[in-house]
Amino acid sequence: MKLHQGWRRLTPYGLVLPSVIVMCLIMLYPFVKTVEFSLRDYTLYSSHRPFVGLANFAKVMKAEWFGVVFKNTLAWSFWSMLFQMIMGLSVALFLHRPIPGARVVRSLVLLPWVMPGVVVSTIWPMLLSPLFGPVNDALLRLGLIQEPITFLGNIRTAMPSVISANVWSGFPFWVLMVTAGLQNIPDELYEAAAIDGANKWQQFRYVTLPHLSLILNITAVLSFIWSFNNLTLIFVMTKGGPLYFTRTMPLQIYFSGFQQHQIGQASALAVITFVFIAVAVFSYLRMTRRQEM
């Protein structure tokens, strides 16, 4: 009997163990390795990989491209997040009104979000093509431009163009989150506000917004992190070009590691990325904690 109970106590560990093992093997172990590599002089063909302390960090942070790449990453993540929010919030608020067919529209709006990133990154270059793209054609017909614009090849328009593609593929997530948030606001609050003489704008300002603020904060952090980590769109559309004008941190890690075989420096960049993301996630977890209370 006692033996039997002893085994029973081990059951939950047995059930959790396979997941823990693969997580350690595929996530934790490589992460420890990344940290280790970042402290070593490690290029692909070096058989001897001496410990060099923080030399890799110093080297990448002094590199002329570091500031540019970091700025690109922040710009790409921030503007993507902001425009996704503006679009997602307006669409969700608009469709929350009693409009015939709102439910169908709400589900059609989610479609861009389920599209594979690679497909998004092949549609957009075609839409923006200077020769046979509809965007240039429309702008020309409307007389807004005289010459077609090479959106993805021009140093001034490349970043806004890849951000547009990212906004298109990411705004539906905001619609989803904000809609869920709106549905959680009790109708009585609006009725009470209306009785107190609040007009539509005041109802929005003093009832809707305060109730949405938590969900907006959470979604903002999530969408910032997702864009920050997203490598696919830029990788396929511009490869970081023209020159380095759309090169972001994940892309730089890929290039340094897999093309230039600077494993040590790429790992240092990865650690820097990790610290940055960890701070963002930490602030995010603190927000959800507050929600539970």
Partner: peptide
């Protein structure tokens, strides 16, 4: 972030 573990993951 996937990019943080990408290189050692490839090796593993």
């Amino acid at each position: 972030p996937l990019t943080v573990v990408m290189i050692p993951l490839y090796m593993t």
